[in-house]
Each structure stands twice: as structure tokens, then as C-alpha cells.
Computed example of a mutant assay.
Amino acid sequence: MRLSDLWRPIRAEMKYLLWLPLYLLSFVILERLPISGYWATQTPWDQAIPFCEWFVIPYCLWYPLLVAVGLYLLARDREGFRRYMVFLSLTFFLSELIWFLIPNGQDLRPLVMPRDNLLTRWIAGLYAIDTNTNVFPSVHVVGSVGAAWAVWNCRRLRSRRALRWAVAVLAVLICLSTLFIKQHACLDVLSGLVLSLAVGLLVYHRNLYRAFRPLAAPD
């Protein structure tokens, strides 16, 4: 089989990635928009959650998780890849719309790190490149839920129970990590879960997904 024969079906799915540059561009613009004031999402519950730098590890595993799930689905389950892309694009853009309509942020980041080690320096670097605004809902949460949902929905992985549960546990750890490294407040996580559930039912429910079928390339 020629390389072009392998590339042709994958190339047909590339249109499902066209949303990503637009999302990243709009994210950068929103992060740099001047905000005179924002709704602070923290609650007394957040004050009871201790800062724990070890959670920066699962927090940063969010990036390879989303990419790995996407690449696997693109290679082995193109229908699953389409649903995954539709889920991520809808949740990410809806999150940006909420950020634009309701400027929000959280004031939970420690002014001085409680300890000085490699992990706390890592978190300080994250703070420097990612503002404390545009947090409600958390895209870390919706992305993690989307990756786990895609893996559990994948027909080829239905016999791989250990892998499916590992992804689910990692998704839970990523959601928790946003709280323990003070990147998000409880309301940010809760709103991300609600948004994920609403869009997930739309995308992964067979009948509702028919609305997106005209976009789908043939397998």
C-alpha cells in the first residue's frame, strides 16, 4: 500500500481541525483584552482546599492527553475523531463566549509560594504565562471530560477496560489539579462539568448527533 493511500482518509478529516487555530487566536485576544473588573468566582470552599504543588503534574498532562486521544481516534476511529472534535470545538468556543459576556477570574493564587522547589517554580511559570481571568468554565475540565468520553465511546477500546479506566482516573486528577494548584475555583470546575454534560449528550447521543452528520466524511 502506498503512503498516499494511507494519508488520503486522514486528510479527509483535517477540516475537523480548522477550529483550533481560530480558538487559539481568540483565546490570546481574550487574555489580552483590558478588563476593568471581573466577577471573582472563588467561594469559602476554595479557601479550605490546600495548595499542593504535586498536582501540577496531572495538570500539565492535560495537553498530551488531548493530543494522544485525538491522534489515536484519527488513526483508528474516524467517526470517534469527528465526535471528539465537535465536542471540543463546541465546549471551547462556548467557554470563550461566556468569558466574553461575563468577564470572570479568581483571586486564589498565593502571592508567595509556600515552598521553593522545582514544582512550585513550574507553577510560578504557569502563572506568568496564564492569567487568573477567563476561568469560568474551566477548559481544562471540559477538555479532560471530552477526552475520557471519547475513549469510553470508542468501539475499538471497549475491551480495553484498564486503559479506559486509566483515562477516566487521569481526567478526574486533572480536574482536581486545577483546584490544588489554584488555577481554578470550585465554581469553575462545576460549570465545566455542567457544560461537558450538556454538550456530551448532544454530541454522543446518536439521535442528536445526526445534526452534524452532513459534515462527516465517509469512512
Rank of each mutant, 00 (worst) to 15 (best):
F136R: 07
P114L: 00
N117T: 07
L163F: 15
M85Y: 00
I49A: 08
Y84L: 02
L118G: 00
A48V: 05
V169R: 13
R115L: 10
D46M: 03
V112D: 03
F81E: 10
F51A: 03
V151S: 07
L65A: 01
L101V: 14
I123Y: 03
W152F: 12
A75N: 05
D77R: 10
L94K: 03
P110C: 12
Q42P: 01
F51Q: 02
L94I: 15
A124T: 14
N132W: 01
W165P: 06
S144H: 00
V69D: 05
N104C: 09
L118E: 02
A168R: 14
L73S: 06
L71V: 12
N153V: 00
L119H: 03
V56A: 12
R115D: 08
M113P: 00
R76E: 12
L74F: 00
L61N: 07
P64E: 11
I174A: 07
R155Y: 02
N132M: 02
A168H: 09
D46T: 09
A147G: 08
D130A: 05
W62C: 00
C52N: 15
N134G: 05
I102R: 05
V69W: 06
F81K: 04
R83I: 04
M85E: 14
N132K: 13
C154V: 04
R83Y: 01
G105A: 02
P114E: 00
P110H: 11
A147S: 12
Y127W: 08
M85N: 13
V69N: 02
R78L: 07
N104R: 05
V142A: 00
W45F: 14
W99D: 14
A48E: 12
F100H: 12
P64Q: 05
A166R: 08
P137A: 07
E96F: 13
R160C: 14
I49S: 06
F51S: 06
E53L: 03
P58Y: 10
E96P: 06
V169N: 09
D77C: 12
L88S: 11
A171Y: 04
W45L: 15
R109G: 01
A162I: 10
D46L: 05
Q42I: 04
S144F: 00
D46W: 04
R109N: 01
V67S: 11
E79H: 14
I102C: 13
S89I: 04
V56R: 00
L90G: 08
W62N: 05
E79S: 14
Y127I: 04
L108Q: 03
L94T: 11
W45G: 05
I98P: 14
P114F: 01
F51L: 06
N134Y: 03
F92A: 15
Y72V: 08
L119V: 07
V142T: 10
A75T: 02
V145Y: 01
F55D: 04
D116G: 01
G80V: 08
S95L: 06
Y63Q: 08
Y72L: 10
L94N: 07
L97T: 14
A48I: 03
T131H: 08
R161D: 12
D77L: 11
T133G: 02
F100W: 14
G125D: 14
L65M: 11
